[in-house]
Design a protein around this nucleic acid. Structure first.
Lengths: 338, 338
DNA sequence: TACCGAATCGCAATCGATTGCGATAATTGA
DNA sequence: TCAATTATCGCAATCGATTGCGATTCGGTA
């Protein structure tokens, strides 16, 4: 490949020592060299089209200016905005993100984790957290810098940035009971994730608080198919008078759509459905989905901010950030039929 | 961060020279060292939890085992599958992808391009091509390895992998005329992209071939808003008896949906709409979108394959790959009203 | 027994940038 | 005018792995 201009080349052209060139070109050390020579070096560098070799620099400084981002699956629509949020904070600061998928497999997660470590990433942003996360525990023991995003993990002291899930569920309930719903089912996310636990817990609490009859249906994954399967179970059984479903996320809600359609029911006339996340295009589904908006872009940006803070001051306190949420009412919720 | 085990540590434990450890651990040079020592070294490496330092290796070998992927905007739903396709080929071969967005700006494209070069990427996969692409021309001159994906560029001899757009348009027409449509408008993608040019050209040819009356409406971008704006122009003007629109891509089609709704028209009863790409969730829109499927996953995988081929044999011929497409008929097309 | 080629493995240079240390030159202060 | 700073900048080690070259060892052959 191209780019074969080294420090030494610039030094030769400028008639100075490579070390001086290095100092002249770095903002932090620029004051250690005469202003005139700085100009001379700058000119030589520009003339030759010099770009520093990141690997050589990284080898010496022990910093790759790279962070690893571990997501379950980039094709889940909540992640691209999150990745862009991460980039929005990282790139202006000279960092790059290496994004890898795990497809929910602990084994591939471990593999990619190690391979990112070998690439000397300066830290991780992981969106694959689950409640008892061995890898994260080990990482902490090894002194690896990590920020959890979207999901949290128990037992590790890593900073985490999440949405205010409890508040989101509460707002859903306020909306739903105002619409007259009194029997509500919850398509709970798969076990082992903090998001699932918190939302289900909030669901139960809200049932109590608003005195509605609740039922929770477990799902096997945060996916359309899993949502459909869980909803099928409800719809295939005896009607129990439920008029609304709050899904663990938008994908599950979409699965509920499918199941309803398959059972000849129409949303929201026969059944109101609420999602969670307000993923891209949620407003273009049929019907447009009522859901809870969380800014995954902000989530990513905030996670990146926390990680860089850790990198620059490793002993800084590991705080947790909870992002605001807001209910966005669209067409998948309607007054309960009497 | 963690991982402070070096070759020298392993060598010390195994009682051999670092060079020997290096050879023992690499598949290519393993045969240069005694089988017994290989075992001894392997054991020592495992015991210490040794992982090679990718930066040190890269510095010496001039290979970062990293490729740069340049996309306009990762939140455009066609790109995540493409990135996953790229990863699916790259990761098993020890490569990683650095994905960056340009937001359609030539300037930021240049910036990220340079910064990826500084990171010593071994090559690029670029999805931001346009017909007269200065940066790509320069890259070629500099000897940078590139594979174009989705879009092609004129005047550069880089391999490109695209969908068979012409065939896709032709299939759309076959479907539409079978439905009785004889006046069709084309929401053409923005000027300057090979996809726009090819699809528009194919549209005109198909009009000829199927003897339908066509009209092409230019758009300013491949976005929902641009699609809506273009469609507004048609719908705000005098009715001309058009009964179907073939959009340059799914986003434009979605914009057409919005415009139709705004004008009190319903798709497909009042107007059939066809998209292009079959992006994720296209079947969940309202109405479910009839569109042309292109496997962006395959597209990415194929691009990665071509790039690695170039890397390993830089003088190999730069062929172009055209991927098959297929029409998927859903709910946004219906027989033309008389 | 002497010699030869092959199999192993150590030595040291190298990739390109950073940085502590020290030398030299320029400047300040008395 | 001279000593004491201070500003500049060169020197060389260093980061960790790879690899051409040469040295040593060993089995085999004449």
């Amino acid at each position: 490949m191209a780019n074969r201009v080294t420090l030494a080349d610039v030094a030769a052209l400028a008639g100075v020592h490579p070390g001086t060139v290095s100092r002249a070109l770095s903002a932090k050390t620029e004051n250690q060299v005469n202003a005139a020579t700085v100009r001379k070096v700058r000119r030589a560098a520009k003339q030759l089209g010099y770009t520093p070799n990141a690997m050589a620099r990284g080898l010496r400084t022990r910093l790759s200016m790279t962070v690893g981002v571990i997501v379950p699956d980039l094709t889940n629509p909540i992640f691209p905005p999150m990745v862009r949020g991460i980039d929005s904070y990282l790139l202006p600061r000279g960092y790059s993100a290496l994004v890898v998928n795990t497809d929910g497999s602990d084994e591939t997660e471990r593999t990619v984790f190690e391979s990112l470590l070998a690439r000397q990433v300066d830290g991780f942003i992981v969106a694959t957290g689950h409640t008892h996360h061995r890898l994260m525990a080990e990482a902490q023991e090894r002194g690896v810098l990590v920020v959890m995003v979207n999901r949290d993990a128990h037992g590790v002291r890593y900073p985490a940035v999440t949405g205010d899930d409890s508040l989101g569920i509460k707002e859903i309930f306020a909306h739903l009971v105002a619409l007259g719903h009194s029997r509500i089912v919850h398509l709970a996310g798969p076990a082992g994730f903090s998001t699932s636990e918190i939302r289900e817990e909030a669901f139960r609490a809200a049932c109590e608080q608003f005195s509605v009859t609740g039922r929770v249906l477990p799902t096997s994954a945060y996916s359309i198919d899993a949502g459909q399967a869980a909803m099928d179970i409800l719809l295939d059984g005896p009607a129990e008078g439920f008029t609304a479903v709050v899904a663990g996320n938008d994908l599950l809600a979409l699965g509920a759509y499918h199941s309803l359609r398959q059972h000849g029911m129409v949303c929201p006339d026969d059944m109101s459905v609420v999602g969670f996340n307000d993923m891209p295009f949620a407003g273009d589904f049929f019907p447009p989905m009522t859901t809870v908006r969380v800014s995954h872009f902000d989530m990513g940006a905030e996670a990146a901010r926390l990680l860089l803070a850790q990198i620059e001051a490793p002993e800084s306190t590991a705080l947790a950030v909870r992002l605001p949420v807001s209910l966005v009412v669209r067409g998948s919720t309607a007054p309960a039929k009497r």
